[in-house]
Amino acid sequence: MVSASKLIPSGFIGISIVIGLTTFYIISDQSKQKRKEHVEGIVSQLINLIIFIWIGKIIVNFFVFIEDPLAILAYPSSSHALYIAVLMSIFVNISNTNSRHNDVPLFIESLLLVFLVASFVYEFIQLVWNNNSYAFGYLVLSCILLVLFISSHGRIKAPALIVMIVTVWSGGMILLTFTQPFVTVFDYIMVPWFVCLFFLISISITIINNRKRGSDGWN
């Protein structure tokens, strides 16, 4: 039986994501149909990420899985499993780029808004509910990014906004890793190399899509 101590954090994550999706749907200036498509796309990405996290957990605990596959259920999803899942998700999305619509930048922009709102809500819960003082740093960073995102949205094109947000997020995360014992995102510990790698991959995706689709696809 799964203990409440394991279910509560998952519940907080679920609540945060729902609030993030709701916020995006309410404040987005996209058409109702486009908002609906993006919400469905984001949910699909989240489901894929969860599947990839389980695959990552199997990879990280491979020998345990070989000996007793059911025992893997008792192992919590580590940060290494998340790293593997994110990299797998990015690889799959790059592979499927040609089959997507030409609104990839707008979708990523929508995904960023949901992520930022969900991150802010989750860290706020951690700070208030669990009295987690280490959540304060990332809470402030999330707040800064939200203000930056909302104030810049519509004033600059989606690709530039994405790069700017990812750059500030990466820089802020690296700063936090050096100013406090650890920094987490949805309870997963982030390390500098992963943040830097994520930044480089994000920039690469932006460049690849820009070259493939041209400036019209990125407006």
Rank of each mutant, 00 (worst) to 15 (best):
D68Y: 04
I50A: 10
I59S: 04
F52R: 06
I13P: 11
V18E: 02
I27Q: 04
V18D: 02
W54R: 01
S31I: 05
I72V: 09
K34Q: 15
L49M: 03
F65Q: 02
G56N: 00
I19P: 12
I59R: 02
G11W: 00
A71W: 08
I42D: 01
K32Y: 09
I15P: 10
I55H: 09
F65C: 04
I55E: 00
D29W: 09
Q45V: 14
N61T: 03
W54C: 11
I19Y: 07
S10T: 10
I19R: 00
V18N: 01
N61A: 03
T23M: 08
I50T: 12
I15A: 15
G56V: 01
I58E: 04
F12V: 11
F52E: 01
I50Q: 04
V39H: 08
S5C: 08
I53E: 05
I13A: 14
G20L: 05
P9A: 03
K32Q: 13
G14V: 10
L21W: 02
F12R: 14
V43D: 08
I72W: 02
G41M: 07
S10D: 11
E40M: 13
L7A: 15
G41V: 07
I50V: 15
T22L: 14
N61M: 03
G56P: 01
E67W: 04
D29Y: 05
S10E: 12
I51S: 04
I19S: 05
F65D: 02
D68P: 04
S10P: 03
I26A: 03
S10C: 07
V43S: 06
S10G: 10
I17P: 05
D68W: 07
K57Y: 06
F62D: 01
G56I: 05
G11D: 02
D29R: 14
D68M: 03
G41D: 10
G14D: 08
Q33H: 13
S5L: 12
S44K: 09
F62R: 06
Q45A: 15
K32A: 15
V64F: 04
E40R: 13
R35F: 09
L7G: 14
P69F: 13
I47T: 12
F62S: 08
P69N: 08
S5R: 12
Q33C: 06
I27D: 00
T23N: 07
S31D: 13
Y25E: 10
I51A: 01
F62I: 11
K6N: 04
S28F: 11
S31T: 15
K57F: 02
I8Q: 09
S3T: 14
R35H: 00
